[in-house]
């Protein structure tokens, strides 16, 4: 039961976070996984776990938020500059390098602290298993609250998607909207990592599916993205439990196996245009 709830919230959170990032950066390939937000959150959690083993749950969650915020800040600093000749490519490369860096540090820390490795590993791979409800309900509340808050901004995102100049003309404070969007992303992705570890590709693919089904209006596709994200993660969870019966495939591995081919097909279809 807890497990299902966690999968549902995490999926919805990641789906929406990816959608917001894609609108914000105007880049169809932006997502918390690819741009290093997940990796940043992971690194801080691993750091904290290395420092003290008897870690209270709230501190780990706080660390996840802080790490997500740090990474988001770095990516934002790059993304919000005027577009360079190689715009979309640069953002993705910077994100990939950033997340490679965070992962390198997490790995190094785990090499030093070898007892921590065993407990952290499954969680690093992404897992929704075996969390007592008392530990996760605050995070679920955060996710739900942010999702509800997003409801109020759907209209403004629609305008922003038409271009910053248009948004300014329509009387929207673009800076403030961007700031709020980034905060939403950080909270959603941080909560997702704190609950379930590193789950990739959900944030990338779900918004695309939702847009295809519901058209370009944020008021329609962003809620749909939340639903689809939740459903997809639930399916992945069920598959991860039933694929190799006695054992369990980490759900992060499962989503990667499902998501990577879709991602590559997506790139094949659209990526060529930017040349």
């Amino acid at each position: 039961m807890t497990r299902t709830l966690v999968a549902l919230t995490v999926g919805a959170g990641l789906g929406v976070a990816g959608g917001i990032m894609q609108t914000l950066t105007r880049n169809p390939l932006a997502s918390p996984g690819l741009l290093g937000v997940n990796a940043g959150a992971l690194l801080v959690v691993v750091c904290l776990a290395t420092l003290g083993s008897g870690l209270p749950g709230w501190l780990a969650s706080g660390g996840a938020f802080a790490g997500a915020a740090l990474a988001a800040l770095a990516v934002w600093a790059i993304a919000m500059r005027p577009a360079a000749p190689s715009g979309p490519l640069r953002l993705i490369l910077a994100g990939a390098a950033l997340s490679a860096l965070f992962h390198a540090f997490s790995q190094a820390l785990l090499v030093i602290d070898q007892q921590g490795l065993d407990t952290m590993l499954f969680w690093l791979a992404g897992s929704v298993a075996a969390r007592p409800l008392t530990q996760v309900w605050p995070l679920m509340l955060v996710t739900l609250a942010v999702l509800l808050a997003c409801w109020f901004y759907l209209r403004q995102w629609n305008v922003l998607a038409a271009g910053e100049a248009v948004a300014v003309g329509a009387g929207i404070s673009v800076r403030r909207l961007q700031l709020i969007s980034v905060m939403c992303v950080v909270l959603l992705a941080g909560a997702a990592v704190a609950m379930a570890g590193n789950i990739v590709f959900i944030g990338l693919i779900v918004p695309h599916l939702a847009r295809r089904l519901a058209g370009p209006d944020h008021r329609h596709w962003l809620p749909l993205a939340a639903l689809l994200g939740a459903a997809l993660l639930l399916v992945a969870d069920v598959m991860s439990r039933t694929l190799i019966p006695p054992r369990e495939v980490p759900i992060g591995v499962m989503t990667a196996l499902l998501g990577a081919p879709v991602f590559m097909a997506l790139v094949r279809r659209q990526g060529g245009r930017h040349g």
């Binding site: 490519l89 490369l93 990939a96 590559m264 990526g271 060529g272």
Partner: peptide, 14 residues
């Protein structure tokens, strides 16, 4: 270059 990088990142994650 763009397609190569994106495919590379996708495959790396997988």
């Amino acid at each position: 270059p763009l397609r190569l990088v994106l495919m590379g990142i996708g495959l790396s994650t997988l």
